[in-house]
């Protein structure tokens, strides 16, 4: 295995399953310098807009730039905080209301670092990564997601 930090695959087709998240946690049991994990899960909300309910979000991305940005954000976060490891996964394609579309996982010897790192990471991802969400209503009409 090459130890140099190469850009890691972030995008997953469709929703991120509870099994995937559980397995990811289990894989850290061998890393015994870790004393604290923090996890952020973004879930698709069934917002009601003008009487219509959002059924799913279909994600697309300018993947070349998004992968580059994820790599930059990863490196910057490792610089800023004392982390043992970091994992970021984001969905592409259709994710139904109630399903997970973003999974961010940071680990450190101490808790303060992970609390700060997770907030920085999630905010920076939302701000800087070219990902777009088409919010699809029950009647198949749609609108474009705007982050607030």
């Amino acid at each position: 295995m090459n130890k140099e930090r190469k850009p890691k695959a972030v995008f997953i087709e469709g929703a991120i399953s509870a099994e995937f998240i559980g397995n990811s946690i289990a894989k850290h049991q061998t890393k015994t310098t870790i004393g604290a994990h923090d996890i952020f899960l973004g879930q698709v909300r069934a917002d009601i807009i003008d009487g219509k309910t959002i059924k799913a979000i279909e994600y697309t991305a300018y993947e070349d730039m998004a992968n580059e940005k994820f790599h930059e954000i990863r490196e910057a976060t490792f610089e800023k905080f004392n982390l043992t490891c970091m994992h970021i996964y984001h969905s592409l394609g259709k994710v139904n209301a109630g399903e997970i579309c973003l999974f961010v996982f940071v680990s450190s010897p101490r808790r303060v670092e992970v609390f700060n790192a997770i907030e920085y990471l999630v905010n920076t991802i939302k701000e800087q990564v070219p990902i777009f969400g088409k919010e699809i209503f029950e009647d198949q009409s749609h609108q474009w997601k705007v982050n607030s």
């Binding site: 991305a61 969400g133 705007v146």
Partner: peptide, 10 residues
């Protein structure tokens, strides 16, 4: 050259 609408990840 790429035109990008507002980012909406997460």
């Amino acid at each position: 050259i790429v035109l990008l609408p507002p980012f909406a990840g997460g």
